[in-house]
Structure formats: structure tokens, C-alpha cells
Computed example of a mutant assay.
Amino acid sequence: MITISQLEAKKFLLKKHFLFGKKTLNSKADILSFIKQVGCLQYDPIDVCGKNAELILQSRILNFNKSDLYEMIYQDRVLVDYFDKNLAIFPIEDWPFFARERALYSERGRSRDEIDKVCSEIIETIDQEGPKSSSELEYAHKVDWYWGHTKLSRAALELLYFKGDLGIHSKKGTIKKYDLMSKLYPVEIISKADPFPDLIDHLCWRVLRRIGAVGMLWNKPSDAWLNLRELKAAQRKEVFERLENEEKILKVQVEAIKEPFYILSSDLALLNSVLGLNEKSERVEFLAPLDNFLWDRKLIEAIFGYKYKWEIYTPEVQREFGYYVLPILYRHDLVGRIEMVCVRKEKKLVVKNIWYESSFKPTKGFQTQLGKSLAAFMTFNACESIEIN
């Protein structure tokens, strides 16, 4: 077992996530490489100052343009949006590994009697006429669906998407157009058999993927395991023991933290590179609320001493901070949080509030870097001015 200090743990995680030192990623190829490393980016459609996946990339990719991600998903089609850690974006080459997820939706779902009656007809219509949105199909009456009473056309399209028969052809705002997966992606990828039909083999792959997504994780309940329905305590224990015995993961003890962590064996060189590292990073970054780096918030609290709760679903009167608040990273610490809103009609970025941790005192150096990061964030959101309240 390797023992490291909390500072070394911080630097390891930040380097793993390309959040330490100067930004070196700057192209579509770099975006794809980063997503392959972390497995997936969690998708969320809410857009206050950028969608979650876009916010993740803007903090790593120099001069990131939102259109690059859209093109990679819906034009280049090297990425696909589907379920991983909840709804996510991942490389299309990983599609076969999620056969279990698709099979699950083939067997379940609300209002299946009504929906199943129209699915074949919808597939035939799309095959003959091309991509369709729910408003372009004539199934207007409503059925009981996951999000409440929903038009039959929407429920049927979504079920076919969940099952893997349809994929998202394009998006415009909240409107999605669906097409046959066989028309969107190479048949040799989407028709490939499940590489891990055995449950434990599959869970080993998923756990390795999640450890790689965060950088280090512990063998305990965690939000980082979301959507791994079959990973109960007994299965998790078996998986960790097997992965450690096969030398695919390494145990790491962080000083002053009782529970050990695990990293990918392939990250040992990266870990060794931060041992005794005196290098400082002057970057200020605003992190996405569902950033892979933040997936295990108890881990972040243990290592960084920083508590973060996404208060978007917290009633306003109960919020400690705000509706859509982003953590602020400076050097190797999470030093505060910021609430920003993009007023698109006015092309203006409004900084509603900034809260600093009680242990942090902003310096002139920090203020300079903060100003640069706000200017970059303004450009990222296609704004032309900043208003600071």
C-alpha cells in the first residue's frame, strides 16, 4: 500500500483531471482523448451559464467552443449520449458495453401496452421519411410516463431510444430528432455483442471505469456509483478484491484519512510524479456541478476540506448559497463558489455572487487570475460584457 499526504492526493487528482498547471488541451482530438480517459461526461440540459458537460470541458480545454461538443456528438458521431452515470456522453466505441442497460428497458417501462402498439410503425416511418421529433408524429393522446402524463409520441420515441433502436439525430434547444441507430453509427459497433455477459466481469469493467473517471475512490457507498444498480455491497466487495488481486487497482492511504482509496494501476506513474512536487498552479477554474472530479463529494470533503451541495433542487428559502453555483478552484484548493447567469438577449454575463471559504483570503495574484478566468468564461458563453453585482 502506498501512503501519500493530503497535498499529494490533491495534486494527483487535479493532474488526473487536467486542472493543474497550464492548459495543454486545445482541440477536438484532445476533447475525445479526455472523455476516453474519464469514460463519460454526465449530461444535464439545464443551461444557466453553460450545460454541465460544456462546463466540464471549458475548465480543461483552452478556448473551448460549445459547438465542438455538439459536432462531435451529432455530426462527427465519435460520441453518443446515452446512460452511463445517469444520462451521459461517451465514446461510441463503448456502446457494446451498455447492452445490459438497453436490455433492461426492453423488459420494463410504463404504459408498455399502448407504447408497444406504435413502436413498429414509428420505426417504419423514420426509416422511410427520415429523422422525426415527437411533434412530427401523430400520436397526440397522453400516457403515463416517467416524467408524468406525456404524449404517446414522445414516450414511444424515448422508449425506442432507451432500448437502443433509435439514437438522437440532432437537438435544437429542447427539441430532439431521432433516427435509426443503424443510420447514425457504424453497424459493426452497434451490433457488437456484450463483451461482458457475466455480471461480475461487467461490474469489474464499470468499477474500473468509475475509478478512472474520478481518479481515486474508496470501497464504500458513493454517489460515484450512481446507475450501477447491480453493484450492491457484496458485489462491490467481490469486485474490489478481484481487481486488486489482478493488480488492476492499487490501494492508497492518504494521511489523516482512515479509509484507504484505490487508483488505477495505470495511474501509478502519475501518482509518483506528484510525490514531493513543489510546483504551483496559478489557474482559477469554475467547475461544473456534476464534474467527474466532484462525483464523490464526501471524498472531496475528506481530501480538500470543501463541502459542496448542488442546490438546484433545494427550495429557495432553504438554500445556503444559490440556484446554480459553481465551485472555484485556485492552485490546489477549492477556495469558494460563484453564481453566474448568462443573459443571452443582452450578451451579458452577470456575476450574482461570490462566496469564499473562511480559510481563504483573496490576494492580488488571485484577483488577477480570477479576472482572466471571468473574461474567458464570458467568451465561452458568447457574451460581450460582464456585470458584477
Rank of each mutant, 00 (worst) to 15 (best):
Y43E: 05
A53G: 01
S33H: 13
L41V: 09
G39V: 14
Y43S: 12
V48C: 06
Y43G: 08
S33P: 07
C40I: 03
L62G: 14
G39I: 09
S59G: 05
G21M: 02
Y43A: 04
I35E: 05
L41T: 00
Q58V: 03
N52W: 09
S27F: 10
S27E: 14
K36P: 00
A53T: 04
K28Y: 03
F64D: 09
T24Q: 05
S33K: 11
N52F: 01
C40Q: 01
S27P: 15
D44I: 02
L32E: 15
Q42M: 05
L57P: 02
S67Q: 13
D44A: 09
V48T: 09
F64P: 13
S33L: 11
Q58D: 15
R60T: 02
Q58Y: 14
L25S: 06
K36I: 00
Q37G: 14
K23L: 07
E54L: 03
K36T: 15
S59A: 13
V48N: 11
Q37F: 12
V38H: 02
E54A: 04
I56C: 15
F64I: 07
L55K: 01
F20Q: 01
N63T: 11
Q42A: 12
V38M: 06
N52D: 06
D30F: 00
C49P: 08
F34K: 00
P45T: 04
I56M: 03
L55N: 07
L57E: 13
K51S: 00
K51N: 05
D30I: 07
V48A: 12
Q37A: 12
K23P: 15
G21I: 01
I35P: 12
N63S: 12
A29T: 15
K66P: 13
L55M: 04
P45G: 04
I61Q: 00
G39Q: 04
K22S: 07
I61W: 00
C40H: 04
S59F: 02
I31K: 05
F20E: 05
K51D: 03
L62R: 11
V48D: 10
D44F: 06
I31S: 07
Q58A: 12
L25R: 02
L25Y: 06
F34Y: 05
V38Y: 09
K36S: 10
K66C: 12
S59R: 01
N26L: 10
E54H: 06
L25H: 13
N65L: 10
L57Q: 07
D47I: 06
K23D: 08
